[in-house]
């Protein structure tokens, strides 16, 4: 009878592989960029004399939504490519996209509610934009719960790919609802604000210049870097799980 140690795959297949140089660079750039954009929004940009200091949360609130947009967008790409190619790697991207995107969507929701308290005098109102953003976050929270609940791996991957593709409609609705439904008090940043917008931002060029780096960071570096780290963990987790199954089946 051969020794059981022989059944184990080579250690490096499940061991933490060294972080790729590109991921190291992205991580450093993301951290530096985060500190820089934070300094731009909190220190360099002037105080809004009408809204006061709370207006500065705008430099996180709006970019975090677009960060979620990128992450959930990658879930759609991962889902489509998984259904087409049946490559597990695409499914990992899809799953990681939801996890990172949901964190960003929660930041967006929480910062919005905290901004609303001094400006609208309420933490929450069932405004079309706020409602759709909440539905979007719940849709993706349900994605993670469903993903954890399906045991058959192939079935899980196919089902979650389809779910991830259709769930993106909630992102698009959240993005465009204030341009379609006029009964909103949520300010529009790009283009004319609705007549009944309250606490509207008059985006001066100083605000826009402080916003652009933050928007670019949350739109690109932050979701990509975090999703990449999450994928590496998922890959290791799957390898360890395979190892467990292999040992159990011996």
């Amino acid at each position: 009878m051969p020794a059981k140690t022989k059944v184990l795959p080579p250690r490096q297949t499940v061991d933490a592989t060294p972080m790729p140089a590109l991921l190291k660079l992205l991580t450093i750039l993301t951290f530096v960029g985060f500190c820089f954009t934070l300094a731009l929004g909190l220190i360099v940009a002037g105080t809004d004399i009408q809204q006061g200091e709370i207006q500065r949360i705008f430099y996180i609130h709006m970019p975090s939504f677009f960060g979620a947009f990128t992450a959930f967008g990658l879930t759609v790409v991962g889902g489509i490519l998984y259904l087409w190619r049946k490559n597990e790697g695409w499914d990992r991207i899809a799953g990681a996209g939801v996890e990172v995107g949901l964190a960003f969507a929660l930041i967006n929701l929480v910062t919005g509610a905290i901004w609303a308290r001094p400006i609208w005098n309420t933490w929450w109102t069932w405004d079309p934009r706020l409602t759709s953003a909440a539905i979007m976050a719940l849709t993706y929270a349900a994605y993670l719960m469903l993903r954890a609940g399906i045991e058959d791996e192939a079935r899980k991957r196919s089902f979650m790919s389809v779910y991830g593709i259709f769930a993106f409609t909630s992102v698009l609705i959240t993005l465009f609802i204030i341009r379609v439904v006029p009964e909103t008090i949520h300010p529009v940043i790009v283009g004319a604000s609705p007549q009944n917008a309250q606490g509207s931002f008059e985006a001066t060029s100083g605000v826009v210049m402080a916003l652009i780096p933050s928007l670019l960071l949350w739109l690109t570096l932050m979701p990509v870097t975090l999703i990449w780290h999450r994928i590496r963990i998922e890959r290791r987790l799957e390898a360890v799980n395979r190892l467990k199954m292999q040992i159990l089946s011996e």
Partner: peptide, 15 residues
């Protein structure tokens, strides 16, 4: 100009 720096601190902490 309203004094709402406390809400900014809360929002940053939450983020």
């Amino acid at each position: 100009t309203p004094d709402n720096a406390g809400y900014l601190a809360l929002a940053l902490t939450a983020s």
